[in-house]
Design a binder for these strands. Structure first.
Length: 276
DNA sequence: TGTCAGGTTTCGG
DNA sequence: CCGAAACCTGAC
């Protein structure tokens, strides 16, 4: 295992909270899957220990994924002082935003629409088991997230065997579009460019575009506006619920001073009652 | 047993 | 543009 000096990083709330479906806690360690590796992480007062498989010691990956080049203390200290945020930060101290793989994040959130977290995690693991590579770590069996090419080549009927229902069409069509537009995402930069591209995928509206931008493209000034996100704005901060999507995100950018993604994540985990 | 879940698309007005 | 129905299915 590799050792990394890393204080104030709440692995539990970060890896098992709502921003990723790819992690499990087993025997005191967190195991996650991407499209090409299994990642093992555990924390021990002020340090984390980690390893990647089958390619070992992928330090570049781990630092990118854990999003370590952000100035966490600065972000927290710069938040507006209000009781809701302070309560949420206190409860989930050390919660971070991850920088996950783009294609996996987009495809995973396409599967999330109108499903609860437990069900979507179950569907993804079923797809992994059927179509992802098997890897043994610590005598435990893991499966990678399926390659985009594999998903694009499956039939709708095959995909529906993983309990994803009407999302099967979205998944296949989006996987195909990702292949046709290989690396196009890397040529884009601004939120508007990202949003236009992402919402052109079948099955991707504003909310899933938000999740993809925040959790895999380092957009920090917006927060995903699902039912919970909107509830936060209306119930806690008094916004009118008939505001348009763009107006709500505009308020988020302004009020949270460019770090709405981070503030929103604290508030989201708090309001939905995630146990730290 | 019926409703609902971290939405999007489609369709009618 | 805007509200409502349709889309699948496991979970409560």
């Amino acid at each position: 295992m590799n050792k990394l000096n890393l204080s104030n990083y709440n692995l539990h709330s970060t890896l098992l909270g709502g921003q990723s479906f790819s992690w499990d806690l087993k025997d005191g360690a967190y195991y996650g899957f991407t499209q090409d590796k299994i990642v093992k992480i555990l924390s021990q007062k002020g340090y984390i220990f980690w390893q990647t498989y089958p390619q070992s010691n992928d330090e570049n990956f781990i630092k990118n994924y854990l999003n370590l080049d952000v100035d966490y203390e600065y972000i927290i200290q710069n938040f507006p002082k209000d009781t809701h945020l302070e309560k949420a930060i206190n409860k989930h101290s050390g919660l971070r935003i991850l920088n996950q793989d783009f294609e996996q994040t987009l495809l995973s959130f396409i599967l999330s629409s109108a499903k609860n977290i437990k069900a979507i995690r179950s569907s993804i693991r079923d797809l992994n088991k059927k179509y992802g590579q098997k890897i043994i770590v610590d005598n435990k069996v893991f499966y990678l997230f399926p390659k985009t090419e594999i998903l694009a080549g499956l039939s709708i009927a095959e995909l529906k065997n993983s309990s994803i229902g009407f999302r099967a069409n979205y998944l296949k069509s989006s996987a195909q579009k990702l292949i046709e537009n290989k690396d196009k995402i890397n040529s884009l930069k601004t939120e508007n460019e990202y949003r236009d591209f992402l919402t052109s995928f079948n099955g991707v509206g504003n909310k899933i575009a938000d999740c993809t931008m925040v959790f895999s493209l380092k957009i920090q000034d917006i927060t995903p506006l699902d039912v919970w996100g909107i509830r936060i704005l209306t119930d806690l901060y008094g916004l009118e619920n008939n505001l348009k999507y763009e107006q709500m995100q505009s308020w988020v950018k302004d009020y949270f001073k460019g770090y709405g993604a981070w503030a929103g994540q604290f508030l989201f985990e708090d309001i939905r009652g995630f146990k730290p």
